[in-house]
Design a protein around this nucleic acid. Structure first.
Lengths: 219, 219
DNA sequence: GGTGAGGTTTAGACACGTCTCAAATTCTAG
DNA sequence: CTAGAATTTGAGACGTGTCTAAACCTCACC
């Protein structure tokens, strides 16, 4: 009962498991360990702990699934994280490639009070700087299905809506190309055999790999 | 060498030892333990660790003294803490009684980058909301010797410059009386035998204990 | 329906920061 | 100067989260 004080580690695991689940990936021990940057055995220990706390159901060798309580906490952490990202970007002018790492540290020490102030001051934003949705105060998160940039036909135009959030180098590169949420993009060419794609952004042509194009959400 | 990653606990101990030192109190094991809210033996362990890390000199049964390196880190933590207090009060409109606790958690996860942005955005403040000095970017802290409110003679006026920072209930009370930094106070009466003092603040008379008056800095 | 490769769990260890309890040391009052 | 009081330290334990090494399941393939 009550609150056995959920450590930062527990919160991080719950968050990653939740994200894996919502990406459609089955949250296997290995996948979780890779995301967390720990050994698989460490993940196993944690999964057992999460199960003991009633935050997840762990069927050994089978996988894990968050309980109602676990999902709730995961959403709270994600809300903290993404709100902080918006805050750091808007109010303190941090660049899009820096906000993720900062928010990762701040998310665990953000009080509900501060969260509310930030949310209010930002005007209740619905998406973070990378285009990921922010759960609202009731922890409801609006899902949206985006096309990915590689699906664009030559000549077609679109607005960038989402970019990956956790690779700072990649984000710096994308920011330089202005291939970030809000950017306007036109498909020029797609080389055959899954070759690179040439896109026009703000009057500049850039060639990017199809793999990268697949990671960029558009609408 | 390098950075053995100074844990939040280490930073907290260094900060408290530094504060004890600059208050003129000899940082004994017991005093440190009381400030940290831990058992004296826990403090001893930590003092030994600090000594092993070259952050302090520990003479058993005698006390402890911060080294150059230890003082530097203490000042960095104090800078983080007090800058955050100003930031939370000014930008996010947190009340003076809430900022200390929030800053205590945030101070350990504030990056240098963020610290610099905050400092700049605030216009390089020199004092936190309780009136304590903020070390500058070079970690120099301006000391000032304040009189305390109980030294005021009947009829004398002064401006409140400093209040205690870590008792939220007390701060709420002082804030209600407007007996906080910036407030203008006039001494009315001081009852004999160290009795209470009656002061005028913004047109309202309040009686406060001499003990409390001693904790309030004026100029 | 065996079997081997790969994913998963267990076992045992460690670092950290905390505790309690008991022993050692220092302080202080007579 | 000394004995009792107060303080400080040491030893051993615990909880958390991590690791490596080794044992253990599962499933797809033949």
């Amino acid at each position: 009962m009550s609150k056995p004080h959920l450590s930062a580690a527990i919160q991080d695991y719950l968050k990653e498991i939740y994200k894996l689940q919502s990406e459609g990936t089955r949250p296997t021990t290995t996948a979780i360990a890779r995301r967390m940057g720990v050994a698989p055995s460490s993940a196993t220990s944690m999964l057992k702990k999460l199960a003991a706390l009633g935050l997840a159901e762990h069927s050994p060798y089978r996988g894990v699934e968050l309980s109602e309580a676990g999902s709730k906490i995961a959403l709270e952490v994600i809300r903290h994280h993404r709100l902080l990202e918006v805050y750091l970007a808007e109010t303190l002018k941090l660049s899009i490639d820096a906000v993720h790492e900062e928010a990762d540290r701040l998310e665990h020490v953000l009080s509900e009070e501060l969260e509310a102030r930030i949310d209010e001051q930002l005007g209740y934003p619905t998406h973070d700087p990378h285009g990921d949705p922010i759960p609202d105060a009731g922890l409801r998160m609006q899902k949206r299905r985006l096309r990915s940039l590689d699906a664009l036909q030559p000549g077609e135009e679109a607005t960038v809506e989402r970019v990956p959030d956790d690779d700072a180098d990649l984000l710096r590169y994308l920011a330089r190309l202005r291939l970030v949420p809000g950017g306007h993009v036109t498909m020029r060419r797609a080389e055959p055999f899954d070759g690179p794609m040439t896109v026009l952004v703000d009057g500049d042509e850039h060639a990017i790999s199809r793999e990268l194009a697949m990671q960029i959400g558009i609408a």
